[in-house]
Amino acid sequence: MMVEEIIDGIKNKDIRSLARAISWIEKEKDEGIELIKNLHHYQKENTHIIGITGFTGVGKSTLLSRIIERYRSMGKTVGVIAIDPSSPFTGGALLGDRLRLSMWTDPGVFYRSVSNRGRMGGLSRMIGDIITTMSVFGFDKIIIETVGAGQSEVDVIKIVDTSVVVLMPGMGDRVQFAKAGILEIADIFVVNKSDLVGADRVRQFLEEMLNFKTSEKRDSMQEEWKIPIIMTIGESNNLKGIDELVEKIDEHFDYLIRIGRLKEIRKRRAKNEIEMLASDIMLRICKNHSSDLDEYASKVANKEIDHYTAAKKIVEKIMMENAISNTSRYT
């Protein structure tokens, strides 16, 4: 299929085209880059990008299914990107989150499983490109589900508008809460499986932490978002707190628009992406200078110069040669 065909398909809400476009992005094909170049200006203005994250087993996928159901009952369309880890040894992955989905044939729901494929920095760029594509397709809500462990997944959560961090009772003590970096990026906390023993204690820990946090930066003049803690049960025969959660997610989006933060977030996302692409290009050029690289590597190994100086010298040399014109892949 041709790139133009796919772009037309996406604009006309053809599922097959959207699915193929995402595959191009996922498989890092040149068509994927071509696609984004020709598609990005059709992005919808008010697509709400939501991240759901939390440790394995807290019930993210089940909760996600409930959130989708709620949005569908409100008439909103939903695109989902579910990220699962791939094995660092075989590269294989079991993308298991689709199992929990309840709405498999609803035309207003598009669900895509993605593996992190052992990527380091590239994951958030890939997800960013998928978001762009889904936004052109026209979903009201785009939801990204991820375990959120490790730097690359935290980077993914940084590109969303509203991040929901899911916890459950019995997951560890105060110290664990203090050291888990994921807690700092929450716009909304969820204590799922809140019928289990210890749910109130989790809530109490979170409240203490949030009080501590707000007392840190009370001098700001801007309207503050008060991070809510929502107690939920995602299991379908015992549902609790889902409507409240969805309400808060939407409230947070309204808040971002009201105070003008949304533009800022989108700009920050773009800045990250440009930085990563630029450093990719630099790395590629650097690797093309393999003879220089070898030469400096020997020098460093022989203790003639240090690696900081060597790296600086290579970059200086590349800039002198203006080798930028040799890179065709991203131009």
Binding site: L94, T105, Y111, R112
Partner: peptide, 28 residues
């Protein structure tokens, strides 16, 4: 399949023809 290095998605039990086809379509 996972241990052989593929990416695998499992549908779970009791899926209708529409559900299977839709999953294959969306996941490409």
């Amino acid at each position: 399949f996972r241990d052989s290095g593929y990416e695998v998605i499992y549908t779970g039990l009791h899926k209708t023809a529409e559900e299977v086809a839709n999953a294959a379509l969306q996941e490409d």
